[in-house]
């Protein structure tokens, strides 16, 4: 079985040896990168600068939550607002692999600038096994380029350090619990964030739509779980589909977009089954989305595909 305490001791010792001088860490406020930040901070203390990038694709209220979390964590941190840059880079891009690679490269360019200022040679990432497995390599097919692996530009000059390279999410959570990290049970959220939950071009307008829909899905599923109507799924969110359909709203014809609800059960993200959400909970989500978001959305569907053949995220 996995021994979190042994892992922590080994990782901290290893990081002490590996990192000579300063390092920066890319932290999204999720479990993986926060665990990595705490491990490295234990190893090298203030020689680590934690960086949170606001890409413009984060969820509702997330920027503030992460600021508070990093403050509580008592690490040396910096918040960078790069949303203009990200939206500009993704303008007109609809291919999911291109989107992921552009986002990966943008992150690195931003980190390179911060690293220069902080005089750091190392970039620490919260990369875990599914990131490099799915990004592909000489023998493995590329399922999707995770921004922190397959999305890295070739001409980067930072040395990458990935203390959790061989771990899966369930193991990272065990480490997070052993380290008393508050976000240990937070649901997974992809690095490219809402940009890959808008199918097609991730423009501000569509990201705003999917942000609202994600918030409703999260609120309702968390509420239903708290009330004991269901167990909180492993991951749950909304995806904005580019297809329009005809509807009727108050005797008026509607021609709006579609939201897909996605919720899955998994242990490690490498295989997953769609969640059996009770109908009454799905009803509530559907009604809220089509009413509160009637300007844009007039149809809600539930994704009933397992992984494989689907992946958890749509892009």
């Amino acid at each position: 079985m996995f021994n979190a305490d042994a892992f922590i001791n080994e990782a901290v010792e290893d990081l002490k040896k590996k990192i000579q001088g300063n390092a920066i860490i890319a932290c999204s406020g999720g479990v993986d990168s926060t665990v990595a930040a705490v491990l490295v901070s234990r190893a090298i203390g203030d020689r680590l600068l934690t960086i949170y990038v606001n890409t413009g694709f984060m969820r509702k209220g997330e920027d503030e939550e992460v600021r508070k979390m990093l403050t509580d964590l008592d690490v040396n941190f910096q918040i960078i607002d790069a949303s203009e840059e990200f939206y500009a880079a993704l303008k007109g891009v609809s291919d999911p692999e291109k989107k992921r690679k552009i986002i990966g490269e943008k992150f690195i360019r931003i980190f390179e600038r911060s690293a220069k200022e902080f005089n750091a040679e190392y970039l620490v990432q919260g990369t875990i096994a599914p990131d490099w497995i799915e990004s592909g390599d000489g023998v493995r097919d590329t399922i999707k380029s995770h921004h922190n692996v397959g999305g890295l530009p070739e001409d980067m000059n930072l040395k990458i350090v990935e203390p959790m390279y061989d771990l899966y999410k369930d193991e990272v959570r065990e480490v997070a619990r052993a380290l008393n990290i508050k976000v240990s049970e937070r649901q997974p959220f992809p690095g490219p964030a809402l940009a890959i939950r808008v199918i097609g071009e991730a423009n501000r307008e569509d990201v705003e739509i999917v942000r609202d829909a994600c918030a409703i899905v999260e609120e309702e599923l968390e509420k239903a779980s708290a009330e004991g109507k269901m167990v909180r799924p492993w991951q749950y969110f909304a995806v904005l589909l580019p297809c329009q359909s005809v509807g009727v709203q108050g005797d008026n014809r509607a021609y709006g977009k579609t939201i897909a609800i996605r919720a899955v059960e998994s242990i490690d993200g490498m295989s997953a089954a769609y969640s059996r959400i009770p109908y009454e909970v799905l009803d509530k989500i559907s009604m809220r989305i089509t009413r509160e978001m009637k300007q844009n959305i007039n149809r809600v569907v539930y994704d009933i595909t397992n992984k494989p053949p689907a992946t958890i995220e749509w892009e």
Binding site: M1, F2, A129, I133, E134, V139, R140, D141, I143, D166, Y168, D268, M270, S271
Partner: peptide
């Protein structure tokens, strides 16, 4: 033996466990 599977590393993990 790695034939390029998505779950090669899972096999390694199960054996390690």
């Amino acid at each position: 033996v790695d034939n390029g599977g998505q779950w090669t590393h899972r096999e390694w993990r199960v054996l390690k466990y």
